[in-house]
Amino acid sequence: MSNFGFATRAVHAGQEADGVTGAVIPSISVSTTFKQNAPGEPIGPYDYSRSGNPTRIAFEQAVASLEGAKHGLAFSSGSAAIATIVNMFSPGDHLISVNDVYGGTNRYFTRVAKPHGIETTFVDITEASALPASVRPNTKVVWIETPTNPTLRVIDIAAVAALVREHAPQAILVIDNTFLSPYFQNPLKLGADIVLHSVTKYLNGHSDAVMGALAMNDDALFQKLKFLQNAIGAVPSAFDCFLANRGLKTLHVRMEQHQKNAIAVANFLAASPLVDEVIYPGLASHPQHEIAARQQSGFGGMVSFRIKGDLATATRFFQHTRIFALAESLGGVESLAELPSVMTHAALTPEERATLGITDTLIRLSCGIEDAVDLVEDLRHALEAAQQA
Results as ranks from 00 to 15, higher is better:
190 L>D: 04
210 V>P: 00
235 V>A: 06
186 N>L: 12
227 F>P: 03
182 P>V: 06
126 T>I: 13
254 R>M: 12
199 V>T: 14
190 L>Q: 13
220 A>K: 14
175 I>C: 05
251 L>A: 09
175 I>G: 02
136 R>H: 14
186 N>M: 10
245 N>M: 11
123 V>G: 10
167 H>Y: 15
170 Q>A: 15
225 L>E: 06
217 N>V: 02
206 H>Q: 11
177 N>P: 05
243 L>R: 15
171 A>R: 11
240 D>L: 00
150 P>A: 11
180 L>E: 03
169 P>T: 05
224 K>N: 15
148 T>L: 03
250 T>I: 10
194 I>C: 04
157 I>A: 07
206 H>V: 05
245 N>R: 11
133 A>E: 14
239 F>R: 12
207 S>I: 07
203 L>N: 07
184 F>D: 01
178 T>F: 02
124 D>Y: 03
222 F>S: 03
227 F>Q: 13
167 H>M: 08
132 P>V: 09
137 P>T: 05
250 T>F: 09
196 L>S: 06
189 K>R: 12
249 K>W: 05
213 A>R: 01
256 E>S: 11
262 A>W: 01
187 P>E: 06
124 D>A: 14
255 M>I: 04
237 S>Y: 10
170 Q>V: 12
138 N>L: 13
198 S>G: 13
151 T>W: 06
184 F>T: 04
211 M>K: 02
191 G>M: 08
196 L>V: 11
148 T>Q: 04
170 Q>F: 13
133 A>M: 12
192 A>P: 03
154 V>C: 03
227 F>K: 14
131 L>H: 01
135 V>G: 09
120 T>M: 03
124 D>C: 13
161 A>L: 09
228 L>T: 00
260 K>S: 11
256 E>V: 12
162 A>Q: 14
215 A>L: 04
238 A>Y: 05
248 L>A: 07
138 N>T: 15
130 A>W: 00
147 P>S: 11
196 L>R: 07
149 N>L: 10
257 Q>W: 07
214 L>Y: 06
216 M>E: 04
234 A>D: 10
194 I>S: 01
257 Q>P: 05
156 D>Y: 00
208 D>W: 03
204 N>K: 10
152 L>I: 11
218 D>R: 07
191 G>N: 09
195 V>T: 15
229 Q>K: 14
142 V>T: 11
198 S>R: 04
189 K>C: 08
149 N>V: 10
213 A>F: 03
258 H>S: 08
125 I>Q: 01
160 V>C: 06
192 A>Y: 04
215 A>Q: 03
250 T>P: 02
247 G>D: 08
244 A>S: 15
180 L>S: 04
203 L>M: 09
220 A>E: 12
138 N>P: 00
143 W>T: 01
155 I>G: 00
128 A>G: 04
208 D>T: 06
180 L>V: 04
217 N>W: 05
140 K>S: 06
121 T>I: 10
155 I>C: 09
174 V>A: 08
166 E>M: 13
166 E>C: 12
178 T>N: 03
140 K>H: 05
124 D>L: 13
219 D>M: 13
233 G>C: 10
241 C>R: 02
169 P>H: 05
126 T>R: 12
126 T>Y: 08
208 D>N: 15
191 G>S: 10
126 T>Q: 12
262 A>T: 01
186 N>Y: 02
258 H>Q: 08
